[in-house]
């Protein structure tokens, strides 16, 4: 997902407090920033919300890649608005993380020096215009699978951020589907672009949900804390079940020869993505890892003089105001 393989922190605290805390969560209460919370809960959330925020920010790059080449004024406007929304999501999420006592600048530094991750999906390239449709349809689609349940997460600010984000994400998904539909129903060249986009994006989209439950080490504690609401495999299955009929409607072929409706299970059977590739991408060896981080680092470095100047001007202005009083 946007937050993948988030390590949950062990907690060693007063067992009574921990029991009372767990009882609040079990009762469906929201935990607010000023409430007592276990250190592990706080740290896990910082990691998860931070990673989610970073994903929104880095996620601007693969789509930003096509803004200047969008084929119509309307498509350009839709794409610009979407990328702008993603930056806004980053902003809400950094704000939610800040309530846990970590600043946006600190989180940014950790992204830039590689201590924190972002979703593996954004380390794949966007190579043709249909990718803009496929990203909305599949990537925003997969994000929604995870984020809709997170609207009920136990941490108040995170839950509220997810409620705002989800509204926009479902809009993105519909627009993405509309864009790729136009391609799939278009000329042979457009159809080819659409199929090519699906071929490249399918398995990376499945990877977004993280490793299979049997290999997922951090889930249990996070699920008890209602930081994670469903298992990776549950969400992946739900995503496949939802997406297959949509691909059929488009007349596109999902690149999985084993994909088949299983009457007994009431779900599609499908091939797992290549988990070795997933771990490679997480380790920094994806096709775009180096470029994505370099682009973020460059933006941050190039922008330093601007941030310094804004701060210096604000200080001077405040000083002048005091002097005038």
């Amino acid at each position: 997902m946007y937050a993948q393989m988030v390590k949950s922190e062990a907690t060693q605290e007063d067992p009574e407090k921990l029991t009372a805390f767990q009882a609040r969560i079990d009762a469906g209460e929201k935990i607010e920033p000023k409430d007592w919370m276990p250190e592990g809960y706080r740290k896990t959330l910082i990691r998860q919300i931070g990673q989610h925020a970073h994903s929104e920010i880095v996620g601007q790059l693969p789509e930003g890649n096509w803004i200047t080449r969008a084929p119509t004024l309307e498509r350009k406007a839709i794409l610009l608005a979407k990328v702008q929304d993603e930056a806004g999501h980053g902003l809400y999420l950094y704000c939610a993380a800040e309530t846990l006592g970590v600043s946006r600048d600190e989180l940014t530094e950790m992204l830039l020096d590689g201590r924190m991750k972002y979703s593996s999906i954004f380390n794949y390239p966007t190579l043709n215009w249909a990718d803009m449709g496929a990203v909305g349809w599949l990537v925003d689609g997969a994000a929604i699978m995870n984020q809709v349940p997170l609207q009920r997460t136990s941490f108040g600010p995170y839950s509220r951020a997810m409620i705002r984000v989800c509204k926009e994400e479902s809009f993105h998904q519909r627009q993405g589907y509309d864009a790729i539909r136009k391609m799939a129903e278009g000329t042979p060249a457009q159809k080819k672009m659409a199929q090519d986009a699906l071929n490249r994006m399918w398995y990376p989209s499945l990877m977004m949900f993280g490793p299979s439950d049997k290999d997922s080490v951090h889930s249990e504690q996070s699920m008890r804390w209602k930081i994670k609401m469903n298992t990776n495999d549950e969400l992946r299955q739900k995503f496949v079940d939802q997406t297959v009929p949509q691909a059929e409607f488009l007349g596109l072929t999902i690149p999985d020869p084993k994909l088949k409706w299983n009457e007994e299970r009431g779900h599609y059977d499908f091939s797992e993505p290549d988990w070795a590739e997933f771990h490679d991408v997480i380790r920094g060896n994806g096709p775009c890892n180096t470029d994505r981080l370099a682009a973020r680092n460059k933006a941050w470095e190039d922008g330093r003089w601007v941030r310094d100047a804004m701060l210096a001007h604000a200080r001077k202005k405040a000083a002048r105001k005091i002097a005038a009083e």
């Binding site: 920010i57 601007q60 790059l61 930003g64 803004i67 200047t68 350009k76 610009l80 990328v83 702008q84 930056a87 806004g88 980053g90 902003l91 950094y94 946006r104 682009a295 460059k298 933006a299 941050w300 190039d302 922008g303 330093r304 601007v306 941030r307």
Partner: peptide
């Protein structure tokens, strides 16, 4: 629009 995702602070990107 060439700035998208590359500006000095998030607020400026927006």
């Amino acid at each position: 629009s060439e700035w998208c995702g590359h500006s000095p602070v998030l607020e400026e990107d927006i």
